[in-house]
């Protein structure tokens, strides 16, 4: 009996040892395999994210290159189609002076040439202003935006108003120009697509954050629409907004007002702390 018990005890120990070892090894191998696959999954996810980000950056870069090209083409067309013929005509009038010795005719052609040169100067000034609005350069974003809104309101088609609540300290000029271009693009979109009867712009700051918010009562879009359009081949203007704000590390948010009557666009920028 004792021998049998001893034999059973040894058999039990062997079974525990055998299955215990198998179990421990299975657990360890399972854990190692799990860790390998989990890490592969994480890396795959990171890669997909990075790929998406690269594609987005590529699209933004293309949009900004296209914008630059369009701007250059516009300036080239303005110079070629308007300034070129005007200067050629002025040259013709001045040439006439060399041929025609009649004093009255000479005076008339000089006067005409002067008129044409004045027009050309105005034209070049307009081109220059479209590149860098003088109001923005001299008086800042607040004046430039107010000026733009006054002009829109003056057309009588839409009621446009703007109010800067806290803009004592100007942003750097380059940043002001970027914000102004974004505002211009947004206004352009509202005028073109929304059929709104009013646009209202407000500016605020909160700590080191700078906000510009625009309301309008037309057909607007939400953040979802914005993200969809910036990822699609169309929506060049929106892509430009995004790439411009990326330079400032800013954000833009499109939403429908809680009252469901207005659409809101909020631009958020980080204001740099003045260095001591």
């Amino acid at each position: 009996m004792l021998l049998l018990q001893a034999y059973n005890q040894h058999a039990n120990v062997s079974v525990v040892l055998f299955f215990g070892t198998i179990g421990m090894l299975a657990l360890t191998i399972g854990l190692i395999v799990f860790i390998i696959f989990h890490q592969r999954k994480v890396i795959r996810y990171q890669m997909t994210l990075q790929k998406m980000e690269n594609e987005q950056q590529k699209m933004l870069l293309n949009a900004s290159i296209r914008l630059q090209e369009e701007e250059r083409q516009r300036i080239a067309a303005d110079l070629h189609d308007d300034a070129g013929p005007l200067l050629a005509t002025a040259r013709l009038y001045l040439n006439e002076n060399l041929v025609n010795l009649d004093k009255t005719t000479q005076l008339q052609s000089i006067y005409n040439a002067k008129q044409i040169i004045d027009d050309t100067i105005q034209l070049i000034r307009n081109i220059s202003h479209s590149l860098m609005p003088p109001t923005l350069k001299n008086f800042g974003l607040e004046s430039a935006v107010n000026d733009t809104f006054q002009k829109i309101s003056g057309s009588g088609n839409i009621n446009a108003s703007s109010r800067f609540h806290d803009y004592k300290e100007r942003l750097p000029i380059d940043n002001e120009l970027i914000v102004f271009r974004v505002v211009q693009e947004l206004i352009n979109n509202i005028l073109k697509h929304s059929n709104a009867s009013f646009i209202h712009l407000t500016q605020n700051t909160n700590g080191n954050k700078f906000y510009i918010r625009m309301h309008h009562d037309g057909k607007g879009m939400t953040q979802k629409d914005f993200e969809k359009l910036t990822k699609s081949a169309s929506g060049l203007g929106l892509k430009n907004i995004q790439s411009r704000l990326k330079v400032l590390q800013g954000r833009i948010f499109f939403e429908k007002d809680q009252s469901q009557t207005y659409y809101k666009v909020t631009i958020e920028l980080h204001r740099e702390e003045p260095t001591a």
């Binding site: 120990v13 070892t21 090894l25 360890t28």
Partner: peptide, 24 residues
């Protein structure tokens, strides 16, 4: 992996070694 495989594989062996018969 080497450490884990070695120690998990021999864990029960060393734990039960004193209870085993000489042949086992």
């Amino acid at each position: 992996v080497g450490i884990m495989i070695y120690f998990s594989g021999t864990f029960f062996l060393f734990l039960q070694l004193s209870s085993l018969s000489e042949s086992d």
